[in-house]
């Protein structure tokens, strides 16, 4: 982290994502958010940190677990909540829902609920940048499970072959729904498995925002020197069920973390500790928190009161 100011800017992004998702957890039992929600609590530092380190006009691709990515790129809690409520004013006009949030005007080009499907699309965007002679950067986010799909390897191979300017960002929570990595992987480790490709491979603790920033900056530096794609392998702990607002440790497929373990995997708590050492006071952080909480609250209320799309909207935007 270069400065206190920069750290506080990052903190706002991290917290905006967290508070927005905590708001979803609070509102979901009312059954008004009729959308499957794949919450990213525990993984917020990855999109926040990676996007922070790339230039303004970069292009991003993501998955159904895209809330933090959307919010960090847009800051648009109004469009976010309106989409979750299926309103006309939502990011996708109520046609997308939580799993397909996009904001092409802010660089979020596509997200998808079909695992691994945006990976080759991101490679296409990187190829287009090369073709057009632009210096756009591309980053694609995907889970550890996505790496099991053939299309991941096909895309990685293509990108490495053509030395494209793309960051592959693996958000590794060790789980695909309820299946542990050990039951799914015939390879020894993620970094080793991509190690045979001509790309820069970096690993780190994705729960630590400062680590994510450091690794991304290193990737960018290395890519500038030696133009090959980069592969960022960032681990994190998924605090909640795969889809839905609850914890599910009682289901028995993984142990509940202790309080200490929770603290050690919570990106917000960890980053607050780092802020302290940068001389940010608790009241200062609390002030940011209450300001953002107000924003989130206002956006969610506005969304609840907003109108749904009208019947003719069903037929619009099938074609350009």
């Amino acid at each position: 982290m270069n400065s206190r100011d920069e750290a506080l800017r990052l903190y706002r992004k991290l917290l905006l994502a967290r508070l927005s998702e905590e708001k979803i957890r609070e509102l979901y039992p009312s059954n008004e958010i009729k959308s499957p929600v794949h919450l990213g609590i525990g993984g917020e530092a990855i999109p926040v940190g990676v996007c922070h380190c790339l230039p303004e006009n970069s292009k991003y691709f993501g998955t159904y677990r895209n809330h933090t990515l959307y919010l960090t790129l847009t800051g648009d809690t109004d469009g976010f909540f309106a989409e979750l409520y299926g309103r006309a004013s939502g990011a996708g006009g109520g046609k997308a829902g939580s799993m397909h949030l996009m904001a092409p005007d802010r660089g979020l080009m596509a997200t998808s609920a079909v695992v691994a499907t945006t990976i080759p699309v991101a490679v296409g965007a990187a190829m287009a940048a090369r073709y057009r002679g632009s210096d756009d950067w591309v980053a694609v986010f995907f889970g550890d499970g996505a790496m099991e799909e053939g299309v991941f390897w096909e895309s990685l191979n293509f990108a490495c072959l053509h030395k494209l300017r793309i960051l592959f960002v693996c958000e590794d929570n060790g789980l695909a729904i309820h299946s542990h990595d050990t039951t799914r992987r015939g390879f020894r480790s993620i970094p080793e498995s991509v190690g045979g490709f001509r790309c820069h491979v970096l690993s780190g603790d994705g729960s630590r925002l400062s680590t994510v920033v450091e690794k991304t900056r290193e990737a960018v530096t290395r890519m500038k020197k030696d133009s090959q794609p980069a592969f960022l392998h960032l681990t994190y702990f998924r605090f909640l069920e795969h889809v839905g607002p609850k914890e599910d440790f009682a289901a028995g497929y993984r142990p509940a973390p202790t309080e200490a373990e929770r603290g050690g995997r919570d990106p917000v708590a960890i980053f607050e500790g780092e802020l302290k050492s940068l001389k940010c006071s608790r009241p200062e952080m609390d002030a940011i928190r209450s300001e953002l909480a107000k924003q989130v609250d206002a956006s969610s209320r506005k969304a609840q009161a907003a109108p749904s799309p009208s019947p003719p909207d069903l037929l619009t935007d099938v074609f350009s």
Binding site: K34, G86, G90, G94, K95, H100, P309, L314
Partner: peptide, 9 residues
């Protein structure tokens, strides 16, 4: 059309 997300549609 593709299937929309919101219930009204």
């Amino acid at each position: 059309t593709p299937c929309p997300s919101t219930r009204t549609l």
